[in-house]
Structures are given as C-alpha cells and as structure tokens.
C-alpha cells in the first residue's frame, strides 16, 4: 500500500528552488534512508513530507496517515541542552497532537507514554532530568515521544548525529525492530552511509537539488549514484 507519494514535487525558499522534480513512492512498511551532501535539500524534503512546507509545484500526497499521526524525531536544538524537563514530560508531549485545543492528558495518554518508554528502555529514567541524560538516552526519549504520536510513519532527521558508535548501533537496532516487528514505516535522513546500507530497504539520494537515485538498497551500490559514496571514495 502506498503511504506517501511525491509527483513532480518541487520546493523553494524565496523563489529559489532547492528541490525540483521529485518523483517517488513509499509503501507501508518500507525503511527509507535519505542520503546526500550538506545542502542537497534533505531537510527541506523532510519538511515537505511532514507537510510543514508546501511544494511550489507538483504534489505530495499522504494516504492513511493523519497530520497528527506522524512521529517525528527532529535534529536536536541548542535550547534543549539545558532545558529543565523530566523525561516523562518530554515523552508525554508526543500525545499532544491527538489532543484538542485545551490539552490535558488523559489516563490513556499516560499509559501510552509509559508503554513507549518501556519499549525503548527509558521507563526507569522517567523522573530524570532530560538535560542530564546521556546523548543516547536523550535520543531514545525523543524516539519514545515520536512513537507516542506515530501510528504508522516515523520520520527521523539524523537520529544518530553526535552519538558514539555503540549508542548509534543500539539506536539503529531499535529502529530496525520498530520496522520489522511493529511494521512501522521509517523515513530517515542520515549521513552514515554504512548504517543506511545495512538497515534500510530503500535509498533516496539527493544531489544538487535533484533526485540522483531512488530504489531498493540492494541496487544502490551498483548504481552510478552509489558508486560515488560506497567504498570507492578517493579519500576512503
């Protein structure tokens, strides 16, 4: 089942196109990795898929997932580094999308929150201060928050950025489990090519505002786009 479709979609800031002519489909249960250099338009694509930024041409259509049902793990902001909040307060805020204007959490919200914290192994940290957690723990708390909002689709913007190899591997395994066991559709922006190749089912490679490669991960290494990044880099 197609969950997300881009048809000739283009995105622009102040009239300058930063992405143009995107055509691809994401099926339910896919694990898509978005790769590309800095400035290739990855973050813009994520904003477009989250419907935070409308395309200037073409269309982005999402079926079967309402606006509040997308789980999103944004890049960490500077303000969060010294933010006084308990892990549970952070995770609970993932339920807000499901609430109306006057948002008070119900018992059901709290149990969804606790369940997701257990799922990611951060339940014991629920009373701890978010800023005092390690990088890996913070990322798992934020992922638990994303899961509180997500029904079918998780969008992750560089989830492993700034983590040490052990913590990022652990995070990748959690994401893989969510994809395999819970049938969660994953869209992940990543700079980590080897991680992307190891875990994803599909690769989307952006270069100079254009789609360079879209297809199964298995076919990527042999493609012209993949050749530049996989194992044959002159500096590698």
């Amino acid at each position: 089942m197609v969950i997300l479709r881009c048809r000739d979609a283009s995105f622009a800031y102040d009239g300058n196109e930063v992405l143009s002519g995107l055509n691809f489909e994401i099926n339910s249960g896919d694990y898509l990795c978005v790769v590309g250099e800095n400035g290739s338009g990855k973050s813009t694509l994520i904003k477009g898929l989250l419907r935070l930024k409308p395309p200037c041409a073409g269309e982005v259509s999402v079926s079967g997932v309402a606006a509040g049902e997308v789980g999103y793990l944004p890049q960490q902001t500077a303000a969060q580094k010294d933010f006084p909040a308990s892990a549970r307060e952070v995770v609970l805020s993932g339920r807000l999308g499901a609430r109306g204007i006057l948002a008070f959490y119900t018992k059901a919200d709290k149990s969804v929150c606790d369940e997701n914290m257990r799922r990611l192994g951060v339940y014991d940290l629920r009373g701890s201060c978010f800023r005092e957690l390690s990088g890996g723990q913070q990322r798992r708390v934020l992922l638990a928050r994303a899961l509180c909002a997500a029904k079918k689709l998780l969008i992750l913007d560089e989830p492993a950025a700034g983590l040490d190899p052990a913590a990022s591997r652990e995070l990748y395994l959690i994401i893989e489990k969510l994809n395999r066991q819970d049938k969660m559709t994953i869209i992940m922006v990543s700079h980590d090519i080897s991680g992307a190749l190891q875990y994803s089912s599909h690769i989307l490679h952006l270069n100079n505002s254009r789609l360079l490669y879209f297809g199964k991960t298995a076919g990527y290494a042999g493609s012209a786009a993949g050749a530049g990044l996989v194992g044959r880099r002159p500096d590698a």
């Binding site: 309402a66 997308v70 999103y72 999308g97």
Partner: peptide, 20 residues
Amino acid sequence: FYNKIFAVTFDESFARASGT
C-alpha cells in the same frame, strides 16, 4: 494551555509536525 506551551517551548518543530 500549559501543556501546549511546554511542547512549543521544548521543541517547536516536533510540535508543528504533530499537528500543534
């Protein structure tokens, strides 16, 4: 609006993405 204010203060992009 306490809970909404928390969400928007802690992480505006997440709040936007989840429909706030």
